[in-house]
C-alpha cells in the first residue's frame, strides 16, 4: 500500500486544495497511491469526516498534523485528544524532545519532515546543536524540497540509522502524490499507520521529475 504521508488542505493557512479535489486528481491522473494523510499546520482537525469521500473514491484519507519545533517541522501521526492536550500544537516554539516524548507516551509517532531545508528542517539544527534522542524516522522525500535538500535528508537518515518516509507536502491539488511511502501491508486508519511506521519495512518513493 502506498500513502502520501504529507499533504495540506484549505484547513491550513497556506493550503489551497480541497480534499475532494485531491481525490478527483488521484483518480483522474491514475496516480499510483492508495491514499494520503492530511497533516495540517499547527493543528489537528478533529471535526472533518472524510469517510464518505474515502468511500466514494476508494482511497485512504487519514489525518495527522505538522507541528513546529526548535529543530524544524515535524509530522505527527496517531494524534489523539490526550496528545493535543499534552502540548500546544499551535505553538511555533515547541522543543523537539517534548514532541518526541509526548508522542511516544501517547502512542503516536513523530517524523521530522523536510530535514534538508534550512531552519524548517532538522539537519542544520542537528549540526549546530547535536541530535535529539528519540528520532527514529525522518522524511527523506518531500515534494516541495529541492534535490539537494532531499539528498541532505537521505544523508542524515543514513548516518544515523533513521528510517525514511516520503510525502508530497502538497498545498495545491496538482502536487499531491509527488512523493509517498510504500508499506508492505495494508494501512487502513491512523492506528495501523502508527503500527506500520513503528514496525519498519516501509520505503520512501518519489515521482518528482527533477532531482
Amino acid at each position: 500500500m502506498i500513502l502520501d504521508l504529507h499533504a495540506h488542505s484549505i484547513k491550513s493557512d497556506d493550503g489551497r486544495a480541497k480534499v475532494e479535489n485531491y481525490c478527483q486528481w488521484i483518480r483522474k491522473k491514475e496516480l499510483p497511491i492508495d491514499g494520503f494523510v492530511l497533516t495540517e499546520h499547527r493543528q489537528f482537525d478533529f471535526e472533518s469526516d472524510y469517510g464518505p469521500l474515502a468511500k466514494e473514491f476508494d482511497l485512504r484519507i487519514l489525518k495527522g498534523s505538522e507541528v513546529e519545533t526548535d529543530y524544524g517541522h515535524v509530522l505527527v501521526f496517531g494524534v489523539s485528544q490526550p496528545l493535543v492536550d499534552a502540548f500546544d500544537f499551535a505553538s511555533i516554539r515547541l522543543p523537539l524532545h517534548q514532541v518526541l516524548e509526548e508522542t511516544e507516551r501517547h502512542g503516536a509517532i513523530a517524523v521530522p519532515c523536510h530535514p534538508g531545508r534550512t531552519r524548517v528542517g532538522m539537519c542544520a539544527h542537528a549540526e549546530e546543536r547535536g541530535l535529539v534522542p528519540g528520532v527514529r524516522i525522518v522524511e527523506v522525500y518531500n515534494g516541495g524540497s529541492r534535490g539537494s535538500e532531499d539528498a541532505a535528508a537521505h544523508d542524515l537518515a543514513e548516518k544515523n540509522g533513521y528510517l525514511g518516509t516520503g510525502g508530497s507536502d502538497a498545498h495545491i491539488v496538482s502536487h499531491i502524490g509527488r512523493c509517498a511511502t510504500r508499506f508492505p501491508g495494508p494501512v487502513d486508519d491512523e492506528a495501523t499507520l502508527v503500527e506500520a511506521l513503528r514496525s519498519g519495512g516501509f520505503e520512501a518513493v518519489t515521482w518528482k521529475s527533477t532531482s
Binding site: 493557512d13 531545508r117 531552519r119 524548517v120
Partner: peptide, 10 residues
C-alpha cells in the same frame, strides 16, 4: 496577522 516558521526562521 499570524506567525510561522519557514526557510528564513521565525
Amino acid at each position: 496577522i499570524y506567525e510561522k516558521t519557514g526557510r528564513s526562521g521565525r
